[in-house]
Simulated scan of single mutants.
Amino acid sequence: MSTGVGLERVAVRLPGRVEKVADIMRRTGHDPAESRLFKTLFGLRHSPSLAPGEQWEDLLTAAGREALGGGHASLVLYGHTLLTQEFALRGGFADRMRARLGLPGSRFFGLSHINCVSVLRGVELARRYLRRPGVSPDDRVLILGGDHASVHDASRVMPGMAVGGDGVIAVAVRPHGRARYRYLGGAASRDARFHRKDLSADRAVLFSQICREQAVDTALRAVRDAGLTPADIDWVMPHLSNRMFWSTFGRLTGIPRDRICTDLIPERGHNFGGDALMALEHAESTGRLRPGHRCVLLSLALGAYFQAVIVEVEED
């Protein structure tokens, strides 16, 4: 168990337009029956999308500035899933972001090819970075997350799983001392049999089974790494793609269903690697979190990848 770092408050930025998931799926040629499945069983109804004239990079900058709160970070990690986004269509993204965030001398790296676990993996990498010899107690890592999904509608629809939106998150990780969420433990896993995006019907069924098993296993290993048991967990901040999935997760882990924060699924849906931190920010803003509460942040991804982080809420 490691207790060396903490997460400061999470900043979320959403675009000015919300689309119906059914409209996105119709526009991309998906079967109406699948659209009904997403709505009735998965609970997916709306997805945030950039409004005309909005720039996705502006959302990312605003979230990053809020998370920094006027402070500094020596390292910026941007976790993303999609490889073709608006900013990638013109060069200089990292330099522009450094300048706009007021971090011209900081190192900037992207985390990709692990899909929707990239943001929580960034937390783990930040923890390692901040445990290096001679680190300053004032040092910080800024983590950015999210994808400009609406730049290419076909890529935002994950058949049988979810529809991705344009929401972004940012959070600063620092040596523990003045952070809102103290890091208690974590775990990761992967199953390389599913490295291809397009799965046959049989492999899609197997993928769903493995996702259930590995999400539970990864979460429970993270709980053990934190020196806890499932009975010690107050909240689960999940991957916001499928309401049914989390009902099964609660049954298999013994964590009560009302402690799994899925209420953002209908109004906001899936926003790639930012989901778990969006759920944490929402629980904070709605007054659910109290000092001493322990939370599981959990992401899963095509590939198949899984990442869990356990945090404890500190005094504000």
Rank of each mutant, 00 (worst) to 15 (best):
M1L: 11
T3G: 11
V10C: 04
A11H: 00
V12L: 00
R17M: 04
R17I: 02
V18G: 12
V21C: 08
G29N: 01
G29L: 01
D31V: 05
P32R: 01
P32A: 03
A33F: 13
E34Y: 05
E34R: 02
S35I: 09
S35W: 10
R36F: 13
S47T: 15
A51T: 10
L60T: 09
A62D: 13
R65C: 12
G70K: 09
A73Q: 03
S74Q: 14
L77I: 04
G79V: 02
T81A: 10
T84A: 14
E86R: 15
F87D: 15
L89T: 13
R90L: 14
G92W: 09
R98W: 05
R100V: 10
P104I: 06
G105W: 06
R107Y: 12
S112I: 01
N115P: 09
S118K: 02
V119Y: 04
L120T: 02
R121Y: 12
E124C: 14
A126R: 07
R127P: 01
R127W: 08
R127H: 07
L130I: 04
P133S: 07
D138R: 14
V141I: 07
L142F: 06
L144T: 03
G146K: 06
D147M: 00
D147Y: 05
V151Q: 10
H152M: 15
A154E: 15
A154S: 14
A154G: 08
R156P: 02
R156Y: 02
G160W: 03
G160E: 08
A162V: 07
G165K: 06
V168C: 05
Y181D: 08
R182M: 11
R182G: 14
G185F: 02
A188I: 13
R193C: 11
L199D: 04
L199W: 00
S200Q: 01
S200M: 07
A201I: 12
F207C: 15
I210H: 09
C211H: 10
Q214G: 11
T218S: 08
A226L: 06
G227F: 10
L228V: 06
T229P: 12
T229M: 11
T229V: 09
D234V: 11
V236Y: 07
S241I: 13
F249P: 05
T253N: 09
I260W: 08
L264H: 04
R268Y: 15
H270Y: 10
G273L: 03
A276R: 05
L277E: 00
L277I: 01
L277M: 08
T286I: 10
L289W: 04
P291F: 09
G292A: 08
H293T: 07
C295E: 09
L297E: 02
L298G: 07
A301G: 11
A301M: 07
L302T: 15
G303I: 10
A304E: 14
Y305A: 03
Y305K: 03
Q307W: 13
Q307L: 15
V309W: 08
V311K: 00
V311E: 05
D316V: 13
